[in-house]
Each structure stands twice: as structure tokens, then as C-alpha cells.
Amino acid sequence: MTDRTAAWQPSALELDRRLHRRRASRRSVLIALVSTVAFAAIAGWLVVTSPNWEAVRQTFFNVEIAAESFPRILEGLWLNIRVLFFATIVVAIVGTLLAVMRSLRGPVFFPVRALATGYTDLFRGLPVLIVLYLVGFGIPGLNPEVRIPVAVLGTIAISLCYSAYVAEVLRAGMEAVHPSQRVAARSLGLSHAKTLRLVVIPQALRKVVPALMNDFVSMQKDVGLISVLGAVDAIRQAQIVQATTYNFTPYVVAGLLFVALSFPMIRLTDHVSARMATREQTGGTV
């Protein structure tokens, strides 16, 4: 009887409630399972029984061509991963700079603020494909003597676009940090820059982690667009195989590889968001 929790036994009332909850959740799982299976079966049946299914299957889901093209596409994907790596670094730096520029106050900083605002407005509005064309064919056109690898141009174009998105997300996060935090920091004698770096940005980042991760997932697939410049990435490799075999299976393979690439990040984003949500609901304790 020394352990007080051991002495406690749930009452009949509580046991009854638990039984009821268990029954209700079992019923919900069953309904969800049956409806999902039924939906998948109907969708599958509709596709498979359509008159031209056999031809489509041959063109898009050809196992031999998939196996044959897989190594080349995987090799192409390596280029996408490298582009993604460098673009992420550039976006992190440029996005932060833009967010800070937009958050500067006072009339002195009007030109800087206007520049950052103009940039984010422009590059959030421009389709990525058009930026790719402008950078990919425009910059080399300036000086034909210098040859810049297309993958580098693609990285620049992707970074230009995503910096604008990330800057806006970061700015929203910085504005969500309560003004009293700035007041406290400035009262200690911290300069504006140190207040941003040590107090505002660390808290802002925490608030926008899910949104940033979402942008990263989006960028993961958009690096595939560099193929339009002729960079030999996963999609370009798929296109090369497609051009010789007249079979679209390589595109499906490339698509699945992109999904596989983004899958861990998507799950991680869900996990982080869910964890943050529960933390907020339980009143702030970790």
C-alpha cells in the first residue's frame, strides 16, 4: 500500500466507458478499411476493364523497359540531388536575407524594403518554367564565350524562385514572434541585428518549420524541371529512353523515384507538425 497508484483500480463506470470507446474505434477502423478497399477495387476495375488497357499497360507499365532504364534514370537522379543540395543552401541564405530586408523598419530602409518586396512579388508570381528559360538561355546569351553548365543555371533559376517563397514564410514567422520579445532583447542592450539573430529568428524558425519543410518537398520535385534546359537528370534520361523505344514507362520510373526521394521528408513533416500540434494543445509543456 506504499504505492498509491497501484492501489487505484478503475471503477466499473470507467471500465464501461473504455469498452464503449474500444467498440466505437473498432467499428470506425472497419468502416474505413472496407470503404478504402472498395474504392481501390472499383478504380482498379475501371482501369483494367477499359477497352485499351492492354496497350496502355504496354506503353506505361512495361516491366522490361522499366528494368532496363532504371540504372540510367537513377544516375540522372543523382544530378537532381546535387542540384537540390546546392539550391537548398542558396535558398536558405538568400531567403533569410530577403526576410530580414523586408522586416527592416523606418524610412531610411525604404529602398531595401522595396527591393525585397519587389523581388518576392516577382518571383512568387513567375512560373518556374519561365524563370528556367530566362536564366537558362538568357544568361549564356549575354556572353557566348563563357560556358556555364546547364545544371548550374538550373540551380540558379530554382534558387531564385524558392528564395522568394522561403523569404515570405520566414517573414511570417518573424512577425509571429511577440513584440515583447524584441522589447526584452533591446532592453538588455542588444542591437537590432543581434536581436534578430539571437532572439527573433530562432523563435521564428521554430514556428515555420512545417511550412519550410513543405517548401523543401516542393523544391525536391521541381528540380526535375531543369531537364528542359538539357541537363541530363532523371527526367531527361527518361526522355532519352522514351525517344528510342516509344515507350513512356521510363517517365513512370522517374516519377516513382521522385516520390521515393520526397517520401522521407513528407513523413518527417507530418511527424513534426503533429508533434507541434499536440504540444500546443497540452499547454506548452514539452
Binding site: S180, Q181, A184, A185, P202, Q203
Partner: peptide, 12 residues
């Protein structure tokens, strides 16, 4: 040195 009504400690 300033101390505020709502503490304003840095939560991070």
C-alpha cells in the same frame, strides 16, 4: 536593468 510584468524570458 528592466523587469517586465510578463517576464519576457526567451523561450528558446
Amino acid at each position: 536593468g528592466v523587469v517586465f510584468q510578463h517576464f519576457n524570458l526567451f523561450p528558446h
